[in-house]
Amino acid sequence: MIDHAVQHLDDRRQPLELVGNTPLLRLERIDPDLPPGVQVYAKAEWYNLGGSVKDRPALWMIRAGERCGQLRPGMRIADATSGNTGIAYATLGAALGYPVTLALPANASAERKRILRALGAELILTDAAEGMDLAIRTIRALVAHEPERYFYPDQYNNPANPQAHYETTGPEIWQQTEGQVTHFVAALGTSGTFMGTARYLREQCPDVYLVAVQPDSPYHALEGVKHMATTQLLPGIYDTTLPDAIEEISSEQAFVMARRLARREGLLVGISAAANVAVALQVARQLTAGVVVTILCDSASRYLSERFWEESEWVESGEGI
């Protein structure tokens, strides 16, 4: 009995080992009309400990902060986000013993606030009418007032963000496709996923085609995605010369694809993940041969209260997907 128990414990995994090494899924049913020589794959990022792709940059920024002494035991991780990055900080902070403080607008969804509080994060709710502006100003003021108490990762300008993808997402895709990836498609938010992954893949294969996904308007429903053409401040980590193409997608097209992925593939994914797949399929349809890889940023569990799930399956503004 004792021998058996010891042997069993050797198989244990620490929670942080669940960051990265996500499955690469082949999407076979989503578009039966794809040319036979074309395959579409997607990284199932909800397999990460915190349930989204954001675990990777969050862990890398925390580790980089520790290495350079900006994050020390007893300090708090502080940022303004109610999105996946906030959940990643709260998850990893709990796993590593760092308390987390997040500022977010009071109208952030109840499910998000519940997840963050369940993970022990301290929430500062700011006036909804002032949007993220006030949440960001609030957290920056807090950090400036007590810099010894707070570590502010600043994912838009922290090189550890794309580095996480350069060291994990890129190599994983290269190995999981056995070096056969020909196209990589990913939406730009902080741009970290695209930058780090694309840079790694380009180094392995100079011919790999790199497609960045953008919403068709600065007013959009693709959570976590940033409209680079109109933003007042580009993320410091974004290199505009890296994408070979930038493809726009409407929020409605992403909604249709989210429903289609659920009903044809059994994949309940989030809205930005659906936007990525919609563009990956647009790219794939123009090929005669190739391996197109994209990112399923998170699962649908954080968006199930959205109205679009209830809408009719295919009909959307007459636009083809």
């Binding site: 969804s109 998000r112 960001i136 429903a221």
Partner: peptide, 16 residues
């Protein structure tokens, strides 16, 4: 009202 409540902001990130 913005279509996304919260997240990590967009143009709002330009706030000083």
């Amino acid at each position: 009202i913005p279509a996304i409540a919260g997240g990590s902001g967009d143009t709002s990130y330009a706030a000083p």
